[in-house]
Design a protein around this nucleic acid. Structure first.
Length: 508
RNA sequence: GGUCCUUUCGUCUAACGGUUAGGACGCAAGAUUUUCAUUCUUGUAAUACGGGUUCGAUUCCCGUAGGGACUACCA
């Protein structure tokens, strides 16, 4: 690999960036960093009918959140701009016409209705040939059937036209894909794809090849859905005479539904309760709102880690937690899997937990204070840090921290029925009253001394830890859950602890 | 329908001709614990099928069967 590595992520601004797009961007990014190359963002907005306002901005903000810094884009600048295809519109016509001149393409004047009629006809005949290709093109309305003179007249008259690629007949060749090896191509089953649309815009196929060439792209890393059009793209490079600088190709496997069949879609997220977009997204057309990974409480680092391991593996190691920097050092396309991967939301949660455990309590405290404030509770930093340390073991997300520990600040108003049945016996109220007495006598309320004194008292009375402490927990927290009971007592303080127990005895 | 791609535990995957087929998630059990968790230990479970090639196939080849993508003046 002796040429400079330049890769691009080239999304269409037709909606929120989905997980497949995220992963394509990520693999491009990691590949670029691994080879000290450039990571370029190009916006492919040649379809004006599908343009969604805000989508481009969303894509950029998503990449930023994940931490994929872009080397060249319209925002970032670069020597090969503009990086948005609608702003490159003027470039494409000459390239399309160049192909017409060299005999690799031709003008076509068929109306959508005529094309539809042809498709219907072929379908009725059960013919397995393409609608517009070597076998049919001489029966259609194009510059090959009209001849030079009539074609010029029609063009001058302003008749709408497209430019189609003239697919060679019966050529067989193989194309190398870094992930898949050699792929067979046979032009006899391919058709004359439109390269240049009647609205003056190029199609993906043309714009893609022209821009990748002009931007000196070295590797095209994209989703598997492009594999069927790879032969066309290679043929285009040849037709332009650019085969010597043609990029290498790597087609990524798809991300599939967690259950059942097919490609992962937004609906799966709704159905199974996990996000499919990085950030909050509100569709400007339908008004539909989708929560993103950020809102769900995922750390961008955990999200990136988990996406990197979907379809790629670091080889013979059991390590699973990787920082972005580590991934930039070890990523390779050779370790990308060929087959599609089902998405596993459960494993995501596990990844997030791993990252949360590694964070310092002081960092977690900030999330904690924020969430508490939303419920109208003010918590000071020191206290928040202490409690985060106590409850973080049982949390997957930062917002679980507050959810798991509200009883430190708000007295329970009801008690878990199942726990009540299990732990609240006839003699419990009497024992609780004794506990109150013991607590009253405590000189200090530090967890350690409480534990020593109360454990001793329980042993002396031969009551059994569970018989005493479970009901205490129930009265303090409203349920039998949470950290060490003596830590809870210490943090609640003497007065609050006693008042909760007394109140509990009455209520139950 | 046609073309192309693909197939290892339920899921993500390791093993690039020779392993008791390894790890992780999940699930289950046990240990720890005053509870829920955490943690630790153990268990669960896979090379789609049929042919070749080979001394030997998860690994290479060919079929079959699943799965997926594409088949637009969408990307």
């Amino acid at each position: 690999m002796d040429r400079e590595v330049r890769v691009r992520f080239a999304p269409s601004p037709t909606g929120a960036l989905h997980l497949g797009g995220v992963r394509t961007a990520l693999f491009n990014y990691l590949f670029a960093r691994r080879h000290n190359g450039k990571f370029i963002l190009r916006i492919e907005d040649t379809d004006q009918t599908r343009f969604v306002p805000g989508a481009e901005d969303y894509i950029i903000r998503s990449l930023d959140w994940i931490g994929l810094d872009i080397d060249e884009s319209d925002l970032k600048g670069g020597d090969y701009g503009p990086y948005k295809q609608s702003n490159r519109k003027h470039l494409y016509a000459q390239y399309a016409e160049q192909l017409v001149k060299s005999g690799n393409a031709y003008y076509a004047f068929d109306t959508p209705d005529e094309l539809e009629a042809m498709r219907k006809k072929l379908e009725a005949e059960k013919a397995s040939i393409q609608c517009y290709g070597p076998a049919t093109r001489m029966t259609m309305k194009n510059s090959l059937t009209f001849g030079e003179e009539q074609t010029q007249l029609m063009l001058q008259a302003g008749k709408p036209y497209v430019i189609r690629f003239k697919m060679p007949e019966n050529e067989k060749f193989t194309i190398h894909d870094i992930i898949r090896g050699d792929i067979n191509a046979d032009t006899s089953v391919l058709d004359d794809k439109v390269l240049y649309k009647s609205d003056g815009m190029p199609t993906y196929h043309l714009a893609n090849i022209v821009d990748d060439h002009l931007m000196k792209i070295s590797h095209v890393i994209r989703g598997e859905e492009w594999l069927p059009s790879l032969p066309l793209h290679v043929l285009l490079y040849k037709a332009f005479g650019w085969q010597d600088t043609m990029p290498e190709f790597a087609h990524l496997p798809l991300i599939l539904k967690p259950d059942g069949k097919g490609k992962l879609s937004k609906r799966d997220g709704d159905r199974l309760g996990f996000p499919v977009f990085p950030l909050h997204w509100e569709d400007p057309k339908s008004g539909e709102v989708c929560k993103g990974y950020e809102e769900y409480g995922y750390f961008p680092e955990a999200f990136l880690n988990m996406m990197a391991l979907l379809g790629w593996n670091p080889g013979n190691t059991t390590q699973e937690i990787f920082s972005k920097e580590e991934l930039c050092k070890i990523f390779s396309l050779e370790h990308v899997n060929k087959s599609g991967s089902k998405f596993d939301p459960e494993k995501n949660k596990w990844f997030n937990k791993q990252y949360m455990e590694r964070l310092d309590n002081s960092v977690l405290a900030k999330y904690f204070i924020e969430d508490a404030a939303k419920d109208g509770v003010t918590v000071d930093a020191q206290k928040a840090e202490t409690i985060c340390g106590l409850v973080k073991d049982r949390c997957h997300f930062t917002h679980d921290l507050w959810k798991e520990s509200t009883y430190f600040f708000i007295a329970p108003t009801s008690y878990d029925e199942v726990n009540k049945k299990k732990f609240w016996k006839e003699d419990t109220p009497a024992i609780m009253r004794e506990v109150v007495d013991i607590l009253e006598q405590q000189p200090t309320f530090a967890a350690k001394t409480l534990e020593e004194n109360i454990t001793k008292w329980i042993k002396d009375k031969e009551l059994g830890m569970g018989k005493v402490l479970n009901p205490v927990r129930l009265l303090l927290c409203g349920a039998c859950k949470g950290p060490h009971i003596f830590d809870i007592l210490e943090n609640l303080g003497k007065d609050e602890s006693i008042s909760r127990i007394e109140k509990g005895i009455e209520v139950i």
